[in-house]
């Protein structure tokens, strides 16, 4: 669907970020093709916000480089193509809604769509004359979204946009975002520490843990690259896995009594892990299962790294 020679929307090369000697991110390498909806997931403090700040150019990486459509974040070329909503959805409380939109209209005049911004605000039942400071959390999010979508950017960066929203507003806001994607084919990076709310939305995933990218790629490819294994634990092996199973392919395995449950990486070019036969109950895992298995198999030092990133 996308031109493979086109610049990816995002490219991170060996990104590292330090804050006063603490490592917040290290060796982050990933590429996000244009037109994708990527979920940036990971526990709180994994470095998601830091990564967003690097993508927007609000922060410069200590090491490595970030590119937005081939341009350095923060430069004019990158800025005009990027819209960002940070986690706290900051707005000027003393401004009216109309004035807040005017910030977008006047500071990002290049592609600004006033009608769209006004429609998004209006559909939320928000009067343009209302002061931002008097709005509820859901309505503030709507205004922030109107500001971001009105800019008509090609890359939309949303840091936990759905947190603190009630389910109805969450559904509404997600619908609004998806409609924008359907209309304009833009690239979206949307972060969350709760994956299920993004499972129907994203087609690409970046799993960040302890400042490192644990997993990155197309969701369908990921689901096809792993197998979920359940069954009676093999009494002859200490870990309960089939004797012939490639131990290096095991992402995470647990045994409860005689019951074994494991996630294994498939052998290259096949749809099963090597050494696993049809005696086992195998199925394609859900995205959430893959991510959870990776999070649970965190290396011992991950907890330390997570703290440093917080």
């Amino acid at each position: 669907m996308n031109d493979p020679t086109a610049e990816p929307a995002l490219r991170a090369t060996a990104i590292g970020q330090r804050f006063r000697g603490n490592r917040a991110l290290h060796d982050c390498d990933f590429e996000l093709p244009a037109g994708r909806i990527a979920a940036l997931v990971g526990p709180n403090g994994a470095g998601k916000s830091t990564l967003f700040h690097l993508m927007t150019g609000l922060l410069r990486p200590t090491t490595g480089e970030m590119r937005v459509f081939g341009a350095v974040p923060g430069t004019r070329a990158a800025r005009t193509r990027t819209a960002f909503i940070s986690q706290d959805k900051p707005l000027y409380p003393q401004f009216t809604v109309a004035e807040m939109l005017a910030v977008g209209r006047r500071l990002s005049p290049r592609h600004w769509d006033q009608a769209k911004a006004e429609r998004i605000v209006g559909e939320g039942g928000i009067s343009p004359k209302t002061r931002i400071g008097t709005l509820s959390g859901g309505k503030r999010t709507r205004v922030a979204l109107a500001l971001a979508l009105g800019k008509q950017a090609d890359l939309l960066l949303l840091d936990e946009p759905l947190a603190d929203l009630d389910p109805l507003v969450r559904h509404e806001v997600t619908g609004l975002l998806m409609a924008e994607v359907a209309d304009r084919g833009i690239t979206v990076v949307i972060s969350s520490h709760v994956l299920p709310e993004l499972e129907n939305v994203c087609d690409h995933v970046l799993l960040l843990q302890g400042g490192r990218i644990r997993l990155a790629g197309d969701t369908q490819d990921l689901r096809e690259a792993y197998t979920r294994l359940t069954g009676r634990a093999d009494p002859d092996t200490p870990d309960g896995l089939p004797p012939g199973a490639d131990r290096a392919a095991v992402v995470h395995a647990t045994t409860t009594g005689r019951h074994l449950s494991a996630l294994l990486r498939n052998a290259p070019g096949t749809s099963l892990p090597s050494g696993v036969d049809e005696h086992w109950i195998t199925r394609a895992p859900s995205l959430e299962e893959i991510l959870l298995a990776h999070l649970r198999s965190a290396p011992r030092n991950a907890a330390h790294a997570t703290e440093a990133a917080a």
Binding site: H171, G175, A179, A182, N200
Partner: peptide
């Protein structure tokens, strides 16, 4: 349209 569906269901347009 895909747009109408995704706006109502909040799913990825590619789906």
């Amino acid at each position: 349209t895909a747009r109408a569906v995704v706006e109502a269901t909040a799913i990825n347009p590619n789906t």
